[in-house]
């Protein structure tokens, strides 16, 4: 593995290796000295063309805990905003000696361009590209879910896949890179996925994806999923007629108090709530649901560092010639 661009490229073995490595990284994060020397002398550049403090600090913490040098390159206010091309930026990073570039970009495929052209030799990690993918988010979701399922079953999580698990992903699938990465990864790991959304927020061609599709959240909940992942709904979608009003969206596809009350039914007693954040409380999820003990949101954030440590370690520890 030289780059992490998409979860579609991962075999079950690759995915489990990343999750297992993340388990060991998580153990380090529980220690007093939360630092490993594995990437000493290596340089990670966080190249963020889109603001995302959450993802950026997660990658930064991950790289630093592996003793890598971290350079944060925010495109805003830099030469990029003065019209510098991605190619020139990449070649600059190459000249600086970047061993890995963690890239967040509003254009789908920008990480592919970095990885596939001869502009730069560094390992490329996709930290979210347009409405394409966000592979480390899906990996941390899978990691969080795997730990939860192991805890319920009383079995070790290391080495396990997600066979038999059922995950419902709810919301704006059309514009969600998180949904795409999760569909490929969760199904690769053996889980069953159901997408729930208004038809306007499902991609054309979704019927060819390896998952079920439903317009009815209550029906999906009746199927007793192991996890329900709520996606953020951006209010500006309302103006583009994807749905008539936020109130109607919330009533039909939100996890409001009434719907959350069903989580006390016996079939849903172990069901957890995932959300990639940031949450829009009162729209796709109520505060009661978000703050409940079913919510894994903060665990997801903590696990994000472990998963990103694993990815950086696996991509960077060996020099290219031996990778």
């Amino acid at each position: 593995m030289k780059h992490l661009l998409s979860t579609r490229d991962l075999t079950p073995g690759d995915a489990i290796r990343i999750l297992d490595t993340a388990e060991e990284m998580a153990a380090v994060n529980d220690r007093e000295v939360r630092k490993l020397p594995a990437l000493r002398g290596r340089t990670v550049v966080n190249l963020f063309f889109e603001d995302s403090t959450r993802t950026r600090i997660s990658f930064e913490a991950a790289a630093k805990r592996l003793s890598a040098d971290v350079i944060n390159f925010a495109a805003k206010g830099s030469s990029v905003s003065k019209g510098e091309s991605l190619k020139d930026t990449a070649q600059t990073l190459e000249a600086i000696g970047a061993d890995a570039v963690v890239i967040r970009h509003s254009a789908a495929g920008a990480p592919h361009r970095l990885a596939m052209t001869d502009w730069i030799n560094a390992a490329v990690v996709n930290a979210g590209d347009g409405t394409h993918e966000h592979p480390t988010q899906a990996l941390l979701d899978a990691f969080t879910l795997r730990r939860h399922l192991s805890k319920v079953a009383g079995t070790p999580s290391t080495g396990a896949d997600l066979a038999g698990a059922h995950v419902v992903i709810v919301g704006d699938i059309l514009h969600s890179r998180v949904a795409r990465s999760n569909v490929w990864l969760l199904t690769t790991l053996g889980a069953r996925v159901t997408l729930v959304a208004p038809p306007t927020l499902l991609p054309f061609g979704v019927e060819q994806w390896p998952c079920a599709v439903s317009y009815d959240l209550d029906e999906a909940l009746a199927d007793a999923p192991d996890a329900v992942m709520m996606l953020r709904v951006q209010a500006e979608r309302m103006n583009a007629s994807y749905f008539p009003s936020t109130a109607e969206y919330s009533r039909l596809w939100g996890l409001g108090d009434e719907r959350f009350a069903r989580f006390s039914e016996p079939e849903l007693k172990d069901t957890v709530i995932l959300h990639p954040g940031p949450m829009v409380r009162g729209l796709e999820i109520s505060s009661v649901a978000a703050d409940s003990d079913r919510s894994q949101v903060l665990r997801q954030v903590a696990n994000g560092v472990s998963v990103r440590m694993a990815v950086l370690y696996l991509l960077m520890s060996a020099k290219e010639s031996t990778r």
Binding site: M1, R17, D20, T21, E23, E24, M25, A27, L36, P37, A38, L66, T158, Y313, L314, S317, A318, K319, T322, R323
Partner: peptide
């Protein structure tokens, strides 16, 4: 993670401590 030959070897998966 503490080896001094990490970059000279194929990527190694860590074991639990």
């Amino acid at each position: 993670m503490f080896r001094d030959d990490l970059s000279r070897q194929p990527t190694r998966s860590p074991s639990p401590t």
